[in-house]
Design a binder for these strands. Structure first.
Lengths: 235, 235
DNA sequence: TCAAAAGTGTTATTGGTACACCCATGT
DNA sequence: ACATGGGTGTACCAATAACACTTTTGA
């Protein structure tokens, strides 16, 4: 390769992942105990450096896979943090991603190496560097995106009920929705396929399971819907 | 400062700016003739490296100011480009911003040093590296954001008419809008202050000037509006 | 039989769209 | 007087929100 740019600084380039999960009760994030100095042992986001031969997207996938064993996960770059002194060790630029995973697909197997743990988004330990800013911003982005795009399904198992979907929305937006309007709205997207069986754990009557119509879903992901009433009141 | 991270690569970190302007006819972008090797003399986006003591936001502002002489410009980080071979000279991560400026505020004075020129977004020369991808993505982001946020005003002079605002929207979204509905929609935002005087250049009757209610505007910038009919048909 | 949760129905209101119409004025 | 673009009025339709109602079934 030819000469390099002269008189320019070069910085470490990392990715950090905010991994969202949902357990049927609370929106959660996955945190690890940092393995690197400085601040070894402190809680932090899962992250790592971008290797020579990969893009940031690839690095984010690799890192997420090494933590959870999962591939093909919804992941989205949302902001790059560049404050000169954000990392106390040396100047590091961090490209932040958020991921949505079905918490039940998460295997404990690999996580032990990282001492990973799920925390409620409303109550998690202090994080290193600017990671708390990252979490705050990721949550805002998730809310913003989810008002108009059908992405929250990524947090649920293959089969889920409408009441479960609604509690997920309510937890993400920290508010309550009318169940009648909610179910009509969701069904009107045409993304849901009603199953024959019911989930009887939540009530005596039982709630029908639904599955995502995956094909339809992929085609409609970019579409702007209106999934949440009065977004300006709650965001 | 303590030790650095060992065994990690470090890359050049740059910002690139997509500068949008509107001249009353066409949505335009500002391009420069590259001053650096490699590819010196080829058309490119305005960009530069992030200096040791500044954030990417600061770098973007500095670079935009050095090109246009303008400060306090609407600017938004929208994506970070990290393909390993995107820069042929050496590995460089580029944090991309888009800016919206009133094209008439732009001074030619400083631009001469950069051989800057305005081009229609629909017809501009080939650009270096992945800069064409950047422009494409910036345009999409601009459209996406402008469907629900009142940011296009940043492209207009202090005083503007509703017909001018409408042509701007029509040019950004490459479609036509009903003038009655458009004007009602815009006025209903409460962001516009009607002036006493008219612009008589466009017609015999003349169209009233409006100004932005700046205070109201700053407060409402984050709000989700619906400024464009049937966004899914046009995006 | 009753409590609790799922699911359906009903209605008033809003807001969007299309399109017709009136207005002002320079030529 | 009339063509041209600016601006207003209106009627229909679809989407929304609020809330009442019915269904199912385990305890």
């Amino acid at each position: 390769m030819a000469a390099k740019y002269s008189n320019q600084s070069r910085y470490a380039v990392a990715v950090d992942c905010i991994v969202f999960g949902y357990d049927g009760q609370n929106l959660k994030i996955l945190l690890i105990k940092r393995a690197l100095t400085p601040l070894k042992g402190r809680w932090s986001l899962m992250g790592g450096f971008v290797a020579k031969n990969e893009s940031a997207d690839q690095a984010a996938s690799r890192i997420l896979a090494s933590l959870t064993g999962l591939t093909d996960i919804y992941q989205e770059q949302f902001y790059t943090f560049t404050n000169p002194d954000r990392d106390t060790q040396e100047r590091t630029v961090s490209i932040a991603y958020f991921s949505l995973i079905d918490i039940k697909k998460y295997r404990e197997i690999l996580s032990d190496a990282y001492q990973a743990e799920w925390f409620s988004i409303k109550d998690f330990p202090n994080l290193i560097f600017d990671h708390e800013d990252m979490v705050r911003m990721a949550k805002k982005r998730l809310q913003y995106k989810a008002t108009s795009h059908a992405i929250l399904f990524e947090l649920l198992p293959d089969k889920f009920t409408l009441p479960l979907l609604q509690s997920l929305f309510e937890d993400v937006f920290e508010t309550g929705f009318d169940k009648g309007n909610f179910s009509r709205k969701m069904l009107s997207t045409g993304l849901l396929q009603k199953q024959r069986d019911k989930d009887k754990t939540g009530s005596k009557k039982g709630a029908y399971f639904y599955k995502l119509d995956r094909k339809n879903y992929q085609q409609n992901l970019h579409k702007i819907l209106k999934l949440v009433p009065n977004p300006n009141n709650i965001l």
